[in-house]
Design a protein around this nucleic acid. Structure first.
Lengths: 222, 222
DNA sequence: TAACAAATTTAGACAAATCTAAATAATTAT
DNA sequence: ATAATTATTTAGATTTGTCTAAATTTGTTA
């Protein structure tokens, strides 16, 4: 039932999971290759394998999407990664920029008890040291919490609930573009190159830089 | 300099390290195969590779011994394994007999800072939950004068410091009789006929067989 | 729309680690 | 000491995940 995935397979699923959030189309072979620092031909091989095992849906030249089964695995890896990051920062004196490399290894340790107990030990944290949400055991992200626009998902609609730092110039910027508390914001497109984001405000499109996006807090609307 | 070993290579070095302690001769190919649940032919292949990289000394049909370089790696893996075991038992509610499988995975995580900080977090433990000594960062084992209960003296008082073989049933036996690391044991009587021993635990007497006595390690309290 | 460029896939090769089966060396028992 | 048994090694094959180079498809541009 719960067939054991190899390390490589797990890394592919995780990469696809993260790439899926940047677009609604299937994830491209090239993007996966870039994310995993491998070659497109290697990606094609692996995607075929994952497709046969029903972790992804794949048709030649059409890109890849995770299936429900694949998403479940990926979310669980993300959960493990982020819980370990919390442990490293809170208990082992790692700084937030030191944790990633080690968490990349720890996320592949296989033991349900280990991760459940770690979660309890850490007091069920909702976010990792970078502010990313930690899914619960069932794979649900806590959608109630505010997230920064930089972490918002394509095609989802949000309500503005606050700012991080209250720079005067930043507040002027918001005023000028008619962004206030309660303003509805839809995420249209995220530019991978510079992490700028195209959003829609009452029918008007606006491009915001990553700097702005990181400083604006949203809450998802359903 | 510090070339990265593969998981398989690390496991071979660790297995050879443990087997070396059972004899002064070179470790046999078959014994390694048995320890790693693989075939003798696979062992020969790997040993040749490790020999070329100077982790072991090997001559055809003569068995294998770790070099200084190989021993250093092996001891470090043992250190990591045992530190993780302490963490699992003391902080994540694992029992003695649950830790091994997970520690087998955790011991291969590569990060010097991780293991140093873990050591500090755990307060530099000298023994793992099975009573086995934890080498320090330089690879030195802190020698303690442990003896088996079978060798203990009448009317002397000891502290439980470990077990010889970690049979699950044996660990359960200890649990059941409230014998754990640090438990104080006084030797009351030794039966010459079958070498069974009567001991006292917190005021309660208990008869243990020679089989049990040989498998339990103690340190004399003075 | 034809031609070019970019993305993707295919074909064939390779390294790591393993296996089976056969060959060889060492050990032991007669 | 010779035969039988056991241990070890060799040879050749397999799997996983990767690569390069060539072929194919898709997208773009003139």
């Amino acid at each position: 039932m719960t067939d054991q995935l190899t390390l490589a397979e797990e890394n592919y699923l995780k990469a696809i999971f993260h790439l899926e959030k940047l677009s609604t189309k299937g994830v491209s072979t090239n993007d996966i290759a870039k994310a995993l620092k491998t070659k497109a031909s290697s990606v094609t091989d692996m995607i075929k394998k994952l497709s046969e095992k029903n972790y992804v849906n794949y048709k030649k030249y059409q890109g890849t999407k995770l299936t429900k089964k694949g998403t479940k695995i990926a979310v669980n890896i993300v959960r493990k990664h982020r819980l370990w990051e919390v442990f490293l920062v809170e208990n082992l004196n790692f700084s937030w920029d030191e944790v990633h490399e080690v968490a990349e290894q720890l996320e592949h340790i296989k033991s349900e008890k280990l991760i459940d107990e770690l979660d309890t030990f850490l007091n069920h944290p909702s976010h990792d040291p970078h502010g990313d949400p930690i899914p619960d055991k069932e794979g649900n992200f806590n959608k109630i919490d505010k997230i920064s626009l930089a972490k918002a998902n394509i095609n989802k609609t949000y309500s503005c609930v606050g700012v991080k730092d209250t720079y005067t110039a930043f507040l002027h910027y918001l005023d000028h573009h008619n962004i206030a508390l309660g303003t509805t914001i839809k995420v249209i497109y995220k530019e991978p190159f510079d992490n700028s984001i195209k959003i829609n405000l009452d029918g008007n499109d606006l491009f915001v830089s990553n700097n702005v996006a990181k400083n604006l807090f949203l809450k998802e609307l359903k």
